[in-house]
Nucleic acid binder design. Structure first.
Lengths: 205, 205
DNA sequence: CCATTGGCTTGTCAAGTGAACAGTTCGCTG
DNA sequence: CAGCGAACTGTTCACTTGACAAGCCAATGG
């Protein structure tokens, strides 16, 4: 009987791509699109730079894969949390949605960093991000949280959306700064819960 | 009588430095520290790259000058606004401080972009920024706005600070994204006032 | 068992990058 | 008005960047 190979080709391919995407997400969030080099990403993934252009044609394609990954995680995380919630009261559902979002922002500050890095310019990456990932999230926000938060005034929806995103994410996105500035480590469980409740109390009291 | 020179040497020097710092602030906010090149900055300022290393020894020094500029503007802007306000009620003063901050964030989104770009890592620029500019602002926030906002619970101060900063700034920092995502142009006077009131109502109702 | 495939490695390239420096201009001072 | 020195310019240097081409070798399938 021939030795079965330790890892099949398909497995290896998938594993490598996964490692690269994860490293890319980390690097892009940390240094921005231009600041992160493909060599740095390759090193974090434990491979070489040439392999990146082999699996992903270009740096842009790799960035899209990284964005797909983090937004996929967000959708899955929020979906699970709200799906298994049998509360009908809209305000209570809105509160729980806000708290779920804050917890996700704490666990994955890369999401916010990516959004800010790209949202400030009008390049193709921003347009792709809005059309592919942000639009669906915003529409869902309008449906679920609009009324309890913005008081059923639709013209306030954009304000409410960006207030929630900014208020819920910033402290985790600049965690090193927060530690040095305030002494509070926002990555602790207690700080995360305190922040989630603080934001929920503000937006859906 | 000898012709007085069109511009004195001191004027020329100051003008040039000013143009470079302004261009640098713009570029750093737009592309991040690593993403912005000194050549790009020189071009925006209408000069050449060599002049930058002449006036500012290094790219780091130029970045500090840019940070000094935007934080100086913030301090001046808030100081003027609150100085000429003869309202004694703490809550009303807090509301006005919040609204003043939101207006500044709208007029100068570079402030928030710089903070996020640097606050996410632990490099020297972040430490310098905290010690030199952020610490004083945070202390003042604790003195003036702490009680009306965080309900006199000092352990909530960091949360309140980052909620205000994030909620008040994000929509302006990612204005191109906001336009495409929601249809709302956050740079209009109406949108700015709406946002200022929205945030003030949340934090100091 | 061997030819082939395809994931991966290595080496190379043109286009930048920040810093440094020699050369040029010109306002100011003596 | 001479000439010093500060403001400015253009170029060079050592290095990094993303992309690509050629070759390597283990898994695959006949």
């Amino acid at each position: 009987m021939a030795n079965a190979p330790a890892t099949t080709r398909a497995q290896q391919r998938a594993d490598t791509r996964e490692r690269i995407v994860e490293a890319a997400l980390e690097a892009f969030a940390e240094k921005g699109f231009r600041g992160a080099s493909t060599r740095d990403i390759a090193q974090r993934a434990g491979t070489n730079q040439g392999l990146i252009t082999y699996h992903f044609r270009s740096k842009d394609d790799l960035w899209q894969a990284a964005a797909d990954r983090i937004f996929g995680m967000l959708q899955k995380s929020l979906g699970e949390r709200l799906g298994s919630l049998d509360v009908r009261d809209p305000r209570e559902r809105a509160r729980e949605a806000i708290r779920a979002y804050v917890r996700f922002a704490a666990a994955h500050p890369e999401l916010f960093r990516l959004m800010v890095d790209e949202g400030k310019n009008s390049e193709d990456r921003m347009k792709w991000l809005v059309d592919t990932h942000l639009k669906p999230r915003f529409d869902e926000f309008a449906r679920a949280g609009g009324s309890p938060i913005s008081g059923s005034n639709p013209s306030l929806l954009p304000h409410a959306y960006y207030v929630m995103a900014g208020a819920g994410s910033l402290i985790f996105a600049v965690a090193p700064e927060c530690r040095r500035l305030t002494g509070l480590d926002p990555t602790t469980e207690a700080a995360i819960e305190a922040h989630a409740n603080f934001v929920a109390d503000l937006l859906a009291p």
